[in-house]
Nucleic acid binder design. Structure first.
Lengths: 249, 249
DNA sequence: TTTTTTCAGTACGGAAACGTACGTCTTTTG
DNA sequence: CAAAAGACGTACGTTTCCGTACTGAAAAAA
């Protein structure tokens, strides 16, 4: 707390590259990071905190560092379902990358954490200035698109257990621990199924020794087991993200 | 056929702006059209013709003018489902816009027609040269993303009849006639449901006077009726497409 | 024309998931 | 500490849709 060196700093000071855990911020060229850094603000992201509201202008871009964001599509009759999750590998505000200023979906913290945010205007300015930043953001956007497409596939063809397993794996990828602090109710909302259905499915996982459950929390014990349950509905978006982030250093 | 004026031309000659029916080609600034025109080739797109294969490089971009393209996500165990359709409002090869050269999904003609195509390399060249072209293509890509997200929503929450109605409306939007030349089998594949389920649902539509059915073809008679069946699962992507294409002239 | 293929109609048992609801624990709030 | 709220366990009848399969009719091929 009382370190005199310039690197360690109060929250709002410009972050050094070493401080950030978001993969996009980590990965981008120093020049691009320098473009963003002055506008980045370290923020805590509390459970259920709303980041974007459908139809409303996007105020900030959030580079997630810990926690998980749920992106949820909603229609006129309030039917809703999760179309993607975002963790330290990504960011919110994808429409900005496409030159749009409005949020398409609802986005909120499903699992609390922290991240860096910057005003939308500053972000679009930076995008305009840097081709390489644009390139990276578009790859990130594409990765999210792929995730959405495979969510559509899972929603249409997978069984409840398969979808639940898929979700747990995606959450696990984005967390630092094996504990997933979530209620059955929220899992049900995201998957668009009954709460009771989630409860039963989780029991089955527990009986098979794949997870341990406590009130408001479940812990992955045997990830390989969950992967088997998820069948082929998990994996492609993850592999594609890796590919997209690998080939342009 | 034997008109001597320079405008009327053989298929491979450079198309004039007035000849093209694809909305993107229509809408873009003349300067951007001039950039693409030399590479555009008028092609007939036959039913079931494959345009993209997952994992394989994208060879051409297709600007659809008539007919409908199905974009289908596939996973390792060959589960598949349609994640979007493309007609005269759009084009194939979205990943190219994001700087990727590979097809993510399977894409093929669901309803035969025609379009203009150009080699992928020429397209990315043009993209690099023109900011306004990039902007337009990104809006088109975003519109497709929205469609995919709402497909995920429909797959997860809508009933078979609602999804079928949604699909018919989306096809109807992209056709010049009320006749949809498709078998129950193909509708079933796209929706990821049983063929027999489609048959029963279509009977219900027919009984209610919404469509007329013949072997391998169905005709919309009462579009408003179909819209009622689709409930709130149809409409948002369409409205958003309109918005996106309106605000940047 | 005859044969073959494709497409559509229909049926039946069964699986999956739903809506609903009620009771029992925890945890939070007053 | 009591009361209220939240989370989970469980149950039952019901809807939706599946897997499968057989039939007749229409179109295409021979």
């Amino acid at each position: 707390m009382t370190i005199e060196a310039g690197l360690e700093s109060v929250n709002d000071a410009m972050p050094s590259r070493a401080d950030v855990c978001n993969r996009l911020l980590n990965k981008m060229p120093v020049s691009d990071f320098a473009l963003l850094a002055p506008h980045l603000e370290l923020v805590s992201l509390k459970e259920r905190q709303v980041l974007e509201v459908p139809g409303r202008p996007i105020t900030h871009v959030y580079f997630v560092e810990t926690g998980v964001v749920s992106v949820v599509a909603v229609n006129a009759e309030d039917h809703r379902i999760e179309v993607g999750v975002i963790g330290k590998e990504g960011m919110t505000g994808v429409p900005l990358v496409f030159g749009d200023d409005r949020a398409q979906h609802s986005a909120y913290m499903q699992i609390g954490g922290s991240g860096r945010r910057m005003p939308a205007a500053a972000f679009t300015d930076a995008l305009r200035q840097s081709t390489s930043l644009r390139a990276l953001m578009m790859k990130s956007a594409q990765a999210f698109m792929i995730q959405t497409a495979h969510t559509a596939l899972a929603n249409g063809r997978a069984k409840l257990e398969e979808r639940l397993a898929r979700w747990l794996l995606m959450a696990h990828d984005r967390l630092d621990s094996d504990a997933v602090p979530l209620t059955h109710e929220f899992l049900a909302v995201m998957l668009g199924v009954r709460r009771a259905g989630v409860t039963v499915a989780l029991h089955s996982f527990e009986r098979r020794g794949f997870i341990a459950a406590r009130r408001g929390q479940l812990t992955l014990i045997n990830r390989a087991g969950i992967e088997q349950v998820a069948n082929s509905f998990y994996g492609i978006p993850e592999a594609e993200l890796k590919r997209l982030m690998a080939d342009t250093p």
